[in-house]
Design a protein around this nucleic acid. Structure first.
Lengths: 135, 135
DNA sequence: TAATAATCTACTAAAATAGTAGGGTAAACG
DNA sequence: CGTTTACCCTACTATTTTAGTAGATTATTA
């Protein structure tokens, strides 16, 4: 299941991408328009800023804005920041690899084999979608 | 992330599929060979039996066994029983559909659009794999 | 009937999720 | 320069899910 954090994060990014210029949008506006708890959204936007997706401006007329063009933001990087690993098991993860403590041999593991295919197919989708494609 | 329940369930099914005849295999044997907590595995096998994948026999010489041929067990049905919905959001689920309480319109929802593709790609993998393919 | 092995009910510890509460801090505007 | 605006940050909490445990029961077979 997709976490609310990821869902809200995606919606917020899409909302910002739809904006005309690069004028900052306030948290309160996004929260209201997208039906998201404002406080929760605050922490999500903050993490998106820390990870280089968003810029922010304080004070009157402040808010958040996209740093890059929507078409230059691939879904792979967004999903990894918001949701974490794209793989369903750590032993097939490219960016978050970990070996399983059960399972003596990855090469012969039935789960490994299947989940490798699932990861590749999901990766394929995320690689072929940028933020611009969500609008 | 794939739950341990699903992981263990898949491993147990694969173990049973590797068996020569249709002689029942005891929970204890599967648990030991696959490094799974026996009590936890008990409940998993029980649910696989209730859902028509396994048969069981009590008493001496008893245990669990596959009811169908591995090649006739598609991963879609296994995953749905063990892990639940294949979709990452209920609003794109074929078998577990639910509308989102935020999100006024699915047709224009950016998350919906993306997750539909992810579901289709995952479904594609599961449909093209049977239990026999995991061995 | 004694041993074996699945079945069933109920409880629990730990982790993740989805928030809340309450200030602090920087920038803009009058 | 001071007030307002709006992001920034820390800490706490309720709920749900996950991953089990414990212990008694029931059915089978030798």
């Amino acid at each position: 299941m997709l976490s609310k954090k990821t869902k809200y994060g995606l919606k917020a990014l899409a909302y910002l991408a739809q904006q005309e210029g690069k004028t900052p949008v306030q948290i309160a506006e996004i929260a209201k328009e997208e039906n998201i708890s404002q406080k929760f959204l605050e922490s999500i936007l903050l993490s998106l800023r820390r990870n280089g997706f968003l810029g922010s401006k304080k004070g009157k007329g402040g808010g958040y804005y996209l740093i890059k063009e929507p078409k230059d933001i691939p879904m792979t990087t967004v999903m990894r920041v918001l949701e974490g690993p794209i793989a369903m098991v750590p032993c097939v993860s490219l960016n978050f690899y970990e070996s399983c403590d059960d399972c003596p041999d990855e090469a012969t593991c039935s789960v490994h084999k299947l989940m490798l295919q699932v990861r590749d197919s999901a990766l394929d989708v995320y690689r072929n979608n940028t933020l611009a494609d969500l609008l």
